[in-house]
Amino acid sequence: MKKLLLPVILCITVATHAQITQNAAQLLRLYEDDDFFNVWGRGTDKGYSNGSSIGYVYMKKKPSVFIDNWLFPKAGKDAVNVFDWALMQIMITPNQIADTSFHPEDYYYAGALFATHGLTSYDPVKKYSLRSEIVFGVLGPWSLAKETQTLFHHIINYQPPEGWEHQVPNSPLLNYNFTYERMVWEYRRSGEVVAGVTGRAGTMITGFTAQVYARYGLINPYFGDTNVQRAMRRKFQLYLMVRPQFTAVAYNALLQGGIFRSRDTNFEELEGKHTSHMRRFSIGLDYGIGIGIGRTSICYTQQTRTAWMSGTGKHSVGNITLLIPLSPSTNSSR
């Protein structure tokens, strides 16, 4: 049955990475990663297997106070500031999920459940943005990843995952992520190239990513415009996108076991048998198509990465992102 789901999903969903601009007041964001989604028909159920998120995107009518002022820098006094909250669950599994034994040459079973709170602040004149985000949650059995995957596989009548007894132990997750992006090239209001770098630090992931994001088609400006009408001149958007990237990682709790792994005797035994190790460097390529109608957008992106763990090979994950307006548009830009 699972083989029948992909064509249905792709028929009703396309595209990803639609920018958020001046009309972002109160949006619902639905986000789904799954390695079974694959435009080439080669879906899998291994490695980074799934990530599901629901979020709320909004603009404030009053100035920020407390933590939003301390941790979230703004792109100048004339910046457009878009805030968000989200809840996300992700899971990583080895290739043979129907096997109850431990596979030392593969990924650990790992799940995480966490909330994020962030700010995307951009300058329509200088055409750059600052994205800051805090992450807080749990790793391990507390994430309920085992229960989620088992339930979903039961619903679609797919093989049950049998190896979650070998998952990483419970650990707290706390991270701060920061991204800087700047426009480097534009072509006749139809093409854009944006360069960016992301840094991450904390108990979840510590590392950085450098990337270039290019898109072409019927688009509104990525960093908006000082005039809201010009910023949203196209009521219908349709574009292709590509995003090559390079990532360096010093620490990843989902691949290495979390900060409390040394306190768990069962996991220490698994770690001693593990023959695969986390790769510090990886390269990736995202590509996809995006559609926007007014303030609603639906997107599909195929995300391909070189191996995160030695001996596991490259991996590809499909992403579906949907933005749905919850309120009338606003001309507010603060």
Rank of each mutant, 00 (worst) to 15 (best):
V82N: 13
G137M: 09
D99M: 01
V125F: 04
A145S: 14
S121K: 08
A112E: 04
D84T: 05
G137S: 08
D99P: 01
S132D: 04
Y58I: 00
F83D: 14
G137W: 06
T120K: 10
S129I: 00
A145T: 02
K127T: 12
D99C: 02
P94G: 07
K74G: 09
F136Q: 10
F114R: 00
I134T: 03
P104I: 01
M91H: 09
P124W: 01
V65T: 15
E105G: 10
D78H: 12
S64K: 11
F114W: 01
L113K: 05
I97K: 01
Q96H: 13
W70S: 11
L139Y: 00
N95A: 13
D99F: 00
F66Q: 06
S143F: 09
I92T: 12
I92N: 09
Y109C: 11
A145I: 01
P124C: 04
I67E: 06
T148C: 06
V80P: 01
I90Y: 05
D68I: 06
T100F: 08
K77T: 12
W85K: 12
F83C: 07
R131L: 09
D84Y: 15
Y128T: 04
K77N: 11
V57A: 04
I90E: 15
H117K: 14
K62C: 07
Y122S: 11
I90T: 14
P94A: 05
Y122Q: 13
R131H: 14
Q89T: 13
A145W: 03
P94V: 05
D123W: 10
G76T: 09
A115F: 03
H117Q: 14
W70Q: 08
V57L: 08
A86W: 06
T100D: 15
K146A: 11
N81I: 02
S101A: 12
G137Q: 06
P94N: 06
Y128S: 05
G137H: 07
L139G: 01
L87H: 00
A86D: 13
Y122C: 12
M91T: 13
P104Q: 04
L119W: 06
E133S: 04
Y56L: 12
G118M: 03
I54L: 10
T148H: 06
K126N: 13
P141H: 04
A98L: 05
A110T: 05
A110V: 04
S143H: 10
G111D: 02
S64H: 07
I90V: 15
A145M: 04
N95G: 10
Y107I: 02
N95I: 11
T100W: 05
I54V: 15
K126Y: 08
V65M: 12
S143G: 10
A112M: 02
Y58W: 14
L113G: 10
T100P: 14
K146I: 05
A110F: 06
V125S: 05
M59Q: 15
I92L: 08
D99I: 00
Y109R: 09
L71M: 11
M91R: 13
G55Y: 10
G111V: 02
I92F: 11
T116D: 04
